[in-house]
Design a protein around this nucleic acid. Structure first.
Lengths: 214, 214
DNA sequence: GAATTAAATGAACGCTTGTTTTATTAATGT
DNA sequence: ACATTAATAAAACAAGCGTTCATTTAATTC
């Protein structure tokens, strides 16, 4: 046999990406073999090399796509208001939604950095830095105009990102809490963490509950 | 050649553990080969099998030791006071100190869980649960007696642990901030996060600065 | 309907993996 | 001094790895 009936390069490539994210998230990049991945796609191993020159190219493709989608999702929902509290809430809510929706992809991006070559690693880290910079900016402006009490905006940005990304470690959507409930609680914790004025907070929480911004 | 001059089983075993933690933390469990590990120890690969029956046994040994040391370290510093705020501060300060001191070991424990068999995985998760339970208890008692404002003690416990463990991702001891400074900031963020009464807080921070509890 | 291109197969290559077997030397106890 | 045990080396195993090659079939183009 050779080319199979109804085969289509675009669909095969998408199927490879999909299967790769799932397998790598569950078993780890090093543990997943090209033959295993091919079997999951329903194809022989050499067929993968039509679409990705090497195993590492495939990994880099997945990670780049994830980071670019994350940045784009923030640019889409980023509010125009200068109010730091409103912007911080938007950032956290979008961050949680994005990462819960893409749990496997997030896992790959967090766990497999060390399997990249130096240049590719720094390419991913650059994208990551670009995203984190958005949060630092919000925190710094909030600290300057007195909306937040933040000792160190870089350190606080890392703390918040670690905290909210950590949701995917334990959160399972079919359990006790819904995504919205979890987001609500994490928003409350974040706003207290940055020392946002509680009086402003209560009003804003009521508003966001009305409009369902996330 | 066979047995080398001055060779000692105890020392070799300790050297294997040490080298394994460092290599696995840097390169990942799957990526580290037994020959590479042996070379790092200064020995031939088969010699490793005198001390650890399989590669996975070695990994499990490292992870178990880490978790047991973590639990023991908390039991050593756990204060007798019923005051939730004081206990939370002690917990967070110890957690950060322990994990910064054992960055590589922590990395292994956080990243390599999926390389364990099911039984061994759940053994490690049991130890982890035992540790996290201590934090949940503090949060629940603090919420009940009004010292904290906590919506969900399980969720808050996860958030705090993710946040403080995340220190090792970016913290390097030779940079801008010292461990004590970082700990101080994280303590402040944690106490705000749980909605601890700010008036009690200021007094307690002054006290802990005097006594240098961590 | 013949020629071309796209998509995949099957076989194989060179290398590395975790691990086992066997033999050899150093330290230890008597 | 001698027997025993602990600690290692050296060689080899079967299995599996990422990847390449040559070939075959399906779809597309003219």
């Amino acid at each position: 046999m050779a080319r199979t009936a109804g085969s289509d390069g675009q669909k095969t490539q998408a199927a490879i990406r999909d299967a790769a994210v799932n397998l790598i998230a569950r078993l780890g990049y090093e543990a997943v073999t090209m033959r295993q991945l091919a079997a999951e796609v329903g194809v022989q191993a050499p067929a993968l090399y039509r679409y990705f020159p090497t195993k590492e190219d495939l990994l880099f493709d997945l990670m780049t796509a994830h980071m670019e989608a994350l940045i784009e999702s923030w640019e889409t929902v980023r509010p125009a208001t200068p109010d730091p509290a409103a912007r911080l809430r938007a950032f956290v809510a979008n961050h949680i939604r994005f990462h819960v929706e893409r749990r496997h992809s997030t896992h790959v991006n967090n766990m497999e950095l060390r399997s990249l070559s130096r240049e590719r690693l720094s390419a991913i880290l650059r994208l990551r830095g670009r995203y984190e910079k958005e949060l630092r900016l919000i925190l710094r402006e909030g600290a300057e105009d007195g909306a937040f009490r933040v000792e160190d905006s870089t350190l606080t940005a890392m703390a918040i990102i670690q905290m909210v990304t950590g949701v995917i470690v334990w959160f399972r959507p079919d359990e006790r809490l819904s995504v919205d409930e979890v987001t609500e609680t994490y928003l409350a914790m974040t706003m207290r963490l940055v020392g946002a004025d509680p009086r402003h907070e209560e009003r804003n929480v009521r508003e966001s509950a009305e409009f369902r911004a996330w």
